[in-house]
């Protein structure tokens, strides 16, 4: 993998951080990522629905949960995007939410594109 690719990937997924959180258990880290992707799809759909129905309370809660999950799954980009939505919802600045949701969606697809490339995963952490 080229140098700039690695720098790019770091904001999507911080492998070192993930491995610390998983106490060095590679197999477990793989399961966490799979679970994160699976639940992330669901959470994103729920969030979109809450935005559509302008339920700011639910938007804040769902974004908060996604923020926590991304932080634990060592996905700093997603974590930041979710945090932006949460704070907009808590401040009731509804107008900003659709654009931020778009950013989150974009980050999500970056993440989804990045993670399957993790066949180099074991070497990267060796």
């Amino acid at each position: 993998m080229k140098q700039e690719d690695q720098a790019q990937a770091a904001t999507v997924l911080d492998i070192e951080d993930l491995m610390t959180r998983c106490l060095g258990n590679i197999e477990f880290a793989g399961r966490v990522l799979a679970k994160f992707q699976e639940s992330g799809d669901e959470h994103l759909a729920e969030l979109e629905q809450a935005v559509a129905s302008q339920d700011t309370e639910a938007v804040a809660q769902l974004a908060h949960r996604l923020k926590g999950a991304s932080a634990n799954a060592a996905a700093p980009g997603l974590c930041a995007r979710a945090a932006e939505i949460e704070s907009a919802a808590r401040q009731r600045s509804l107008r900003e939410i659709p654009a931020r949701l778009e950013n989150l969606r974009h980050e999500w697809s970056r993440f989804a594109a990045e993670v399957p490339r993790l066949d180099w995963f074991p070497e990267a952490t060796a």
């Binding site: 998983c22 258990n25 966490v32 639940s39 949960r65 926590g68 999950a69 634990n72 799954a73």
Partner: peptide
């Protein structure tokens, strides 16, 4: 913990300890 990913990591750490 309400979020399943965070719960998974928490549980794994606790068991590890």
């Amino acid at each position: 913990e309400d979020d399943c990913v965070s719960a998974e990591i928490l549980e794994n750490s606790l068991k590890h300890f």
